[in-house]
Design a protein around this nucleic acid. Structure first.
Lengths: 213, 213
DNA sequence: TAGTTCTTGTTACAAAAATAACAATGTTAG
DNA sequence: CTAACATTGTTATTTTTGTAACAAGAACTA
């Protein structure tokens, strides 16, 4: 049960997905599950499921598979923070609001504490249970609410500036949905995702399948 | 200049990003660029840039670096389809509209041909230059517009059904932003992205940095 | 009881991706 | 002219990720 060894990033992603599926199973009165069942739900291989579960040090029973409740709890111990973390969404365009909707009221360990926008129309309203503040109160609110993770959904022109402010406020992690890459000091964990890049990648592989060579 | 060898997926992603940055440079009258300059723009290493460029068979000049115009054109030859591809966005919630906004009018080779939603309020309106059709006309429109790529932004409950319809209509690639994994026949290229998973991954690494062990 | 069948846990292997190392070659400086 | 330098292109190495192979053990069957 030694799981201080750093787990691979991809394993973490899958653990998050296992838990989500397992919660659904639990809601259906299911108590145990086999590796190949989890695999089928997520369209991956049973081997990979078993390997991931091995890495977190959980052990199923031989003929019943894994205890769903126990597995959910263990995944929680691994990927959740004990006391929870506060998250802020910066930029309430369509994407920012989409994220608020997705997350609203779901995660208990990840609390969306605040949203920010520059548009006065949006400021002081509440979206998905989250209050929207003006962008110029970013620093103040981040500190007051002890926000550790920022989700960047501002226009590309604002990315660098907002990112700097986040870092200066002592943010611990940034999820950047802006098409503009940012750089951060090593103690800040950064993950970037660009929708246009993803789409162009799909287009490339579609093209290749059409004209194989 | 043999670039029929399949390029790594990650290289494709970076090529897309190189092109975007290079277009900006070109707009600033710049004609040549060094690998370390590209690297700095995207916060990666110069070696990786050179390696990617080597893989597509382009050669820069020794003291001037790469010709920006030529490089942009070559990347286009590689990742764009000759005649362009038509894309449809299925589901016009916040996320669907965000994508339309991002893409509207930008890509010439990737044309957003149609959007779909089940909500009558949205149907028959135009979003970002793209007409919205009712979901039950999906099959008809996809065939009429010769759509090869579908972007899935419907609620999780609808994912499986819509995905099946897409496959039946002969779609070539799917970009699934739904939290529900789908499976498709091997000739359909599938890419999935789940925002909640990404956020939980960031949270995990933030937690690890806080309590290193 | 002995054997068959599932399923897990683990080790070994393969593939993909990133990084490092370094030869080659114009260009500049003296 | 020669040496130092900056930059590319390529090969080699390491790291990460995924897949396969297989021993071991509980439950069922006869």
């Amino acid at each position: 049960m030694k799981r201080n060894n750093k787990l691979p990033g991809k394993t973490i992603e899958r653990l998050s997905q296992y838990r989500r599926s397992l919660l659904l199973c639990l809601a259906q009165e299911k108590t145990h599950i086999f590796s190949h069942e989890i695999a089928a739900l997520l369209h991956i291989t049973p081997v990979q499921v078993r390997r991931d579960i091995m890495l977190i040090g959980y052990t199923g029973t031989l003929r019943q598979g894994y205890d769903i409740r126990e597995l959910i709890d263990l995944i929680g111990e691994i990927i959740d923070s004990q006391d929870g973390l506060n998250v802020a969404v910066i930029g309430l365009g369509n994407l920012g609001r989409a994220i608020l909707t997705y997350l609203s009221g779901k995660r208990t360990k990840l609390r969306i504490a605040a949203a920010f926008d520059i548009n006065p129309e949006k400021v002081d309203k509440v979206y998905g249970g989250v209050p929207c503040y003006p962008l110029d109160r970013l620093q103040e609110i981040l500190e007051k609410e002890e926000v550790s993770i920022g989700i960047l959904t501002v226009p590309a022109t604002e990315t660098a500036g907002v990112a700097n402010t986040l870092v200066n406020c002592g943010i611990k992690g940034i999820l950047n949905y802006t098409p503009k890459p940012i750089n951060v000091p090593p103690h800040v964990y950064l993950q970037e995702y660009d929708m246009i890049t993803s789409l162009e990648k799909v287009a490339y592989f579609v093209k290749r399948n059409q004209q194989p060579g």
